[in-house]
C-alpha cells in the first residue's frame, strides 16, 4: 500500500510544470524514504532528478517499493482538476496498474478522485558521481529566468563565466551580442534576493539556451536557484522545494570542436 498526502497540492502542480516540457513520461519511484524521479530528456542532453522526502508529506506510507510509470500529459490533466488550496492524496495498491489522486477542498465540502492508468517504462538509472564543483552560484530564481529568457533572443547558446568578482552570462548571434554581469551582493538583508558565489577555480562553460529555459519552469518552486559548475562536466541547476525536497537538472555542456 502506498499513500501520500500533501496539504498543498500546488507544490505537486508546480513540480509537474517543472518537468513536463522536458519529459513525456517518467517513473516515480516510491519507497519508505519518499518519492524519487530520475529521467533524461529524449536527446540525452539533460537529466531531471526529483526528490520528495517522505517526512515532507503530511502523511506518508509506503509498505513496498513501487515504481509508477506515468504519462506526464495525463497527470497534467488530472492535476488541473485540483484547486490550488486542495489537499491531495496519492494512493496505490501494491503491484497496482493504476494510481488514484484524491483532492479535498480546504473546507472538505468537495471531494474528488481520479484514477490514472500506469505505464510500463524501461528504466535506465544513471549513476551521478559526487563532484566538488569549482563554482557554486546562488541567485534569485526569477533573475535567472529573466537572464535565460533575455539571452535566448541573441543566440542558441549562453556562456556562463564565473570568477570571484561575479558571474557573467553572455550570448551572441545575428543581431549582436549580450552580456549580463551579476556581482555578489554586499549585504544579505533579504536572503532570497542575494547573489552568492563560492569559487575554488574560475570556470567558463557554454550551454544550450533552450534547456536552461526549460529548467526555469521550476522558478515558482523556489525563490533561489543554485548553479554548480566545473570545467567540462554537466551543469547542475537546483531548486529547493520548500521543506520537502529538491529538483535538480543536469545539462551537458557544449564542447568546442
Amino acid at each position: 500500500m502506498f499513500e501520500a498526502r500533501l496539504v498543498q497540492s500546488s507544490i505537486f502542480k508546480k513540480v509537474l510544470e517543472a518537468i513536463k516540457e522536458l519529459l513525456n513520461e517518467a517513473t516515480f519511484d516510491c519507497s519508505d524514504s519518499g518519492i524519487q524521479l530520475q529521467a533524461m530528456d529524449s536527446s540525452h542532453v539533460s537529466l531531471v532528478s526529483l526528490n520528495l522526502r517522505s517526512d515532507g508529506f503530511d502523511q506518508y506510507r509506503c509498505d513496498r517499493n513501487l515504481s509508477m510509470g506515468i504519462n506526464l500529459a495525463s497527470m497534467t490533466k488530472i492535476m488541473k482538476c485540483a484547486g490550488n488550496d486542495d489537499i491531495m492524496t496519492m494512493k496505490a495498491q501494491d503491484n497496482a496498474d493504476s494510481v488514484t489522486f484524491m483532492f479535498e477542498s480546504p473546507n472538505q465540502e468537495k471531494m474528488s478522485d481520479y484514477e490514472m492508468k500506469l505505464m510500463n517504462l524501461d528504466q535506465e538509472h544513471l549513476g551521478i558521481p559526487e563532484t566538488d564543483y569549482s563554482c557554486v552560484i546562488k541567485l534569485p530564481s526569477a533573475e535567472f529566468a529573466r537572464i535565460c529568457r533575455d539571452l535566448s533572443q541573441f543566440g542558441e547558446s549562453v556562456v556562463i563565466s564565473c570568477t570571484k568578482e561575479g558571474v557573467k552570462f553572455s550570448a551572441a548571434g545575428d543581431i549582436g551580442s549580450a552580456n549580463i554581469k551579476l556581482a555578489q551582493t554586499a549585504n544579505v538583508d533579504k536572503e532570497d534576493e542575494a547573489v552568492s558565489i563560492e569559487m575554488q577555480e574560475k570556470v567558463s562553460l557554454t550551454f544550450a539556451c533552450r534547456y536552461l529555459n526549460y529548467f526555469t519552469k521550476a522558478t515558482p518552486l523556489s525563490p533561489q536557484v543554485c548553479l554548480s559548475m566545473s570545467a567540462e562536466v554537466p551543469l547542475v541547476v537546483e531548486y529547493k522545494i520548500g521543506e520537502i525536497g529538491h529538483i535538480r537538472y543536469y545539462l551537458a555542456p557544449k564542447i568546442e570542436e
Binding site: 540525452h44 538509472h125 544513471l126 549513476g127 551521478i128 544550450a208 554537466p234 557544449k254 564542447i255
Partner: peptide, 14 residues
C-alpha cells in the same frame, strides 16, 4: 563551432 555534449559520456548507466 560547438557541439552539444550528451550526458551518457559523463554518467554511467547503473
Amino acid at each position: 563551432t560547438t557541439t552539444q555534449g550528451r550526458l551518457d559520456s559523463f554518467f554511467k548507466v547503473i
